[in-house]
Design a protein around this nucleic acid. Structure first.
Lengths: 371, 371
DNA sequence: CTGAAAGCGCTAACAG
DNA sequence: CTGTTAGCGCTTTCAG
């Protein structure tokens, strides 16, 4: 069935503005004016047309309109992995903004699909009016394909030096620093970090800030206390944390480059029966939903995601209108959310507060025999 | 900037197939034929045109093409809440399938945005060629707006009786039954359930099947052992589970209508220091990523999501081509994945197996005093 | 204030 | 095999 088929009347053909014009006894141009709320239409005429429009439930042909106006009415969003909770969270926020603007949201996955390539093609063919990149690196094909300062592209949550587009992120360098200072201030002695691939700017910055502040505090990050996780998954965090926790002198504090890794790290401690926060502090980054759950109760950094998204969408729509405006790079501050994974008791509103430590000291029992 | 602006050459105008034709010394129609791989073009001519196409990096105008072909080249997907992990997981799978078909994926959120309404409007205006509904209920505005058997709509994961569209889901009734039988077979004495709003068909079916098999086993679900969660969130599950666990005779087994509720239930047990699985079994539904984490290690039902999505997408594309084909309702079987929340030790590949019970018997210590 | 008319860039008959 | 031609449904001058 063609798209038009959905709009067919009994006659078998979709109703066009021309048909409506005939029914209303006006010209097609007038119908078009009414549709677009063009002021130059007599109130009486407008009413008559509107009545017919409603009566026949007229639906303008989206393709014809885009064709004529050179506007797709859609914005593309490239995410890294839908399975990392921060991306759906961003999509939710972006979707809400775009809905309010009457724009469709087209989503591509850069990791599973070939999202980058699809996005640049869609943009160049006019399939979308602009693109929001949430997972861009210097190597992304997209940024080689489209790299003019006029291009309607905005980077959220990632910075790519030298790429001429609006960019919005949070102050990851500062977050890294504060994590280190928080550990030092909390009297932690053996401080470790689980990092990730350096292509992602937030990860790189968090790590750099962390190292910086640690060095400034007179106790640079020891090589054996640094683990690079393979991917940003719970599993990778768990594996990396196990490597750290099985050292002769295991760390008593781990800063993880994001929450997924941190949740994995907590589960590693749980698996080994290491008490948190007594024997180990864990700090993450992003404040994903799970971070607040009793099972983890993770201290983490919260980015003002809604504001960031709001800013990014506004910036993008603006550039679509005025391609020549100056490029802007905006950085937002993060908030350190302290929870039980570093010793504070948290009381989420509306929930029974969990008491005591997150994971208690205990000896794992013998495995239960199955069957 | 208009969409076309992205494609402008130095001249200031976007390059059209007409321009390419002139450069190649052929007619515009021939260029069009080459673009569409129409066989009726001499190899030599095709090559010449292709060379120019590549040379000038020609990009066909997407709007003009949709306009002409009556195809948007996009499929809409309506999800309930991006923050429930099953939806991003579905999107990931749907996106991969659509990418392979060269279709864009337009996403709407039915809960936060007014996704339903947007979707039906887009479909009727030809902004998308078809719609996948993953969160449809009998009350959804969408199904009143568009309800012809020819409409390119497919329901995934939800069934709506009487709605004339292809529908694919898994056998939730059977899952509910098996949960009950599993509890009974495991010698559970005080069996409870955390359900949800009855509008969602999978929830309704899981609950019905569970009650049915329990009754068949001679021990119908007691009213005080049934809690209806307010929403499908971790928080709602936690709250509902607390109500159950604080009863005089708390249940020793809880079946939750989905994993999010189950994860909340486990956290409720954790909060109260109730050992799992010794004092309590918990079973969920969906097998979300977190279910396999050591913190939860949740026994749950896995739906063959990839197959379901594959089937749904194929069905939808097929209906777009042949609107008059008979409606199909397809049901897939689920797999019960047994983990430690019901006493079995699980060994996820590549991870250190967690030993012993999930949550051990312990007395919560006094709260640590902050500051 | 309203109508007539000219396309937007592409696809698809139809001739040649 | 290739060119000519006729629109798709809408927006937007330009007259009146």
């Amino acid at each position: 069935m063609t798209a038009g088929a959905m709009r067919r009347q009994a006659t078998g053909r979709a109703l066009t503005s021309h048909d409506v014009a005939r029914m209303a006894g006006v010209s097609q141009a007038t119908v078009s004016r009414v549709l677009r709320d063009d002021p130059g239409v007599r109130a009486e005429t407008r009413e008559r047309v509107r009545r017919i429009l409603a009566e026949v439930d007229y639906q303008p042909n989206a393709a014809a309109r885009s064709f004529r106006t050179h506007r797709a009415g859609a914005i593309g969003v490239v995410v890294a992995r839908l399975s990392y909770q921060i991306y759906p969270a961003m999509l939710e926020l972006i979707g809400a903004r775009l809905d309010a603007l009457g724009q469709q949201m087209v989503v591509w996955d850069a990791e599973h699909g070939d999202g980058d390539r699809h996005a640049s093609r869609a943009l160049r063919q006019g399939g979308v009016d602009g693109v929001i990149l949430t997972a861009c690196t210097r190597e992304s094909p997209f940024i080689r394909d489209v790299c003019s300062p006029q291009a309607p592209v905005v980077l959220v949550n990632r910075a790519v030096d030298g790429y001429p587009s609006d960019q919005v992120s949070s102050d990851n360098l500062d977050g890294g620093r504060r994590a280190a200072e928080y550990f030092i201030g909390g009297g932690r002695q053996r401080i470790a970090m689980i990092g990730g691939v350096q292509q992602a700017s937030p990860i790189r910055d968090r790590e750099a800030g962390f190292r910086q502040a640690l060095a400034a505090g007179g106790r640079p990050l020891a090589a054996h206390y640094y683990q690079r996780a393979e991917g940003f998954t719970h599993r990778a965090g768990l594996a990396a944390a196990l490597r750290l926790l099985e050292l002769q002198a295991p760390p008593d504090a781990i800063f993880c480059a994001n929450d997924m890794l941190a949740l994995g790290a907590i589960d590693a401690a749980r698996t080994l029966g290491r008490p948190i926060p007594d024997a180990l502090w864990v700090v993450g980054y992003d404040d994903v939903e799970m971070a607040a759950w009793p099972a983890f109760d993770l201290t983490t950094f919260r980015q003002p995601m809604d504001e960031m998204i709001g800013y990014a969408v506004a910036r993008l729509m603006n550039r679509i209108e005025e391609p020549d405006r100056a490029i802007e790079h905006k950085t937002f501050a993060n908030e350190l959310v302290i929870r039980r994974s570093t010793g504070r008791r948290s009381v989420p509103v509306g929930e029974s507060p969990a008491a005591g430590p997150l994971i208690m000291r205990e000896t794992p029992e013998e495995e239960t025999k199955d069957e």
